[in-house]
């Protein structure tokens, strides 16, 4: 076998697709819950965009021109909901199935290995996230919050952001011992959601906090989305892309290693 040994021996049978098929079949029954995922970021968009629109006034867009609060907050919510969905799926769902449903135990008695399971579950999560992002972008377009054809790239960008968080999230899920540990994830996720310039510009912070926020992955996701939906695209966005590429590689490598030890004991 000449394939690079980045995953433990026997952990990948190349059948992640069968795992995706299972998810699709299961979700056909719970389609309402699946589809409803589109609405949550939209509720936020309407509540904040309309409600605060008359209070906050205009903000400065990525290209320096004034934009409405709705146009400011929308790309932030797009990136944030990609993160929230990916983290939920890769931590909560994985942990639930591991601990209680024993679905993975049954899968691993077949030729499938931990890497098939991880890839299959992540792919499904991304398919779903992609649907949500597409729905959100369509609403943004309908509300006139998109001002550039670059926005077409916001969809793959949302998938990249979700993939980055899913890879790291799954790595984190493999370290969790009990439900109590979910609070730690919440403790990382919520401040990131609230303070990574989703709702207000980074200029409100004093210098040291600003630097800290600029290290958050979600900050880079949001910057990427703002650039693409407004058309203020520079070479600089490749830096944001690289940030997430590294998350995917490092998180994925760690998760594949850990899943093997976790599932096959």
């Amino acid at each position: 076998m000449t394939v690079l040994r980045i995953v433990p021996m026997g952990s990948y049978a190349g059948r992640a697709r069968a795992v995706i098929e299972r998810s699709a079949l299961v979700n056909r029954r719970n389609w309402l819950l699946v589809v409803s995922g589109v609405f949550e970021p939209l509720f936020y968009l309407f509540a904040l965009g309309i409600g605060f629109g008359g209070i906050v006034g205009t903000l400065t867009g990525p290209d320096g021109s004034p934009i409405s609060y709705a146009a400011y907050v929308a790309p932030g919510l797009l990136a944030a909901s990609a993160m929230n969905g990916a983290i939920h799926d890769s931590t909560f769902n994985i942990f639930l199935k591991l601990k209680y449903a024993k679905v993975y135990d049954a899968m691993l008695a077949t030729p499938l290995g931990p890497t098939d399971v991880a890839l299959g579950e992540t792919s499904w999560s991304l398919i779903r996230g992609g649907i949500y992002a597409a729905g959100f972008l369509a609403v943004m377009a309908a509300l006139g919050l998109i001002s550039s054809p670059w926005a077409l790239l916001a969809l793959p960008a949302a998938l990249l952001v979700a993939f980055g968080f899913a890879a790291v999230g799954m790595g984190a899920a493999t370290l969790m011992r009990s439900w109590q540990d979910f609070d730690l994830i919440l403790l990382v996720q919520m401040p990131m959601f609230l303070f990574s310039t989703t709702f207000f510009p980074i200029t409100v912070y004093p210098e040291p906090i600003r630097i800290a926020v600029e290290c958050f992955p979600l900050y880079h996701g949001i910057e990427l989305m703002r650039a693409l939906t407004s058309g203020a695209v520079t070479w600089g966005i490749l830096g944001h892309v690289a940030y997430f590429a590294i998350m995917v590689a490092a998180g994925g490598w760690f998760a594949a290693r850990r899943l093997g030890t976790l599932l096959l004991t």
Partner: peptide, 10 residues
């Protein structure tokens, strides 16, 4: 976040 962060713009 909303009170102090966004609030600073209101």
């Amino acid at each position: 976040a909303m009170g102090f962060g966004l609030g600073s713009r209101i």
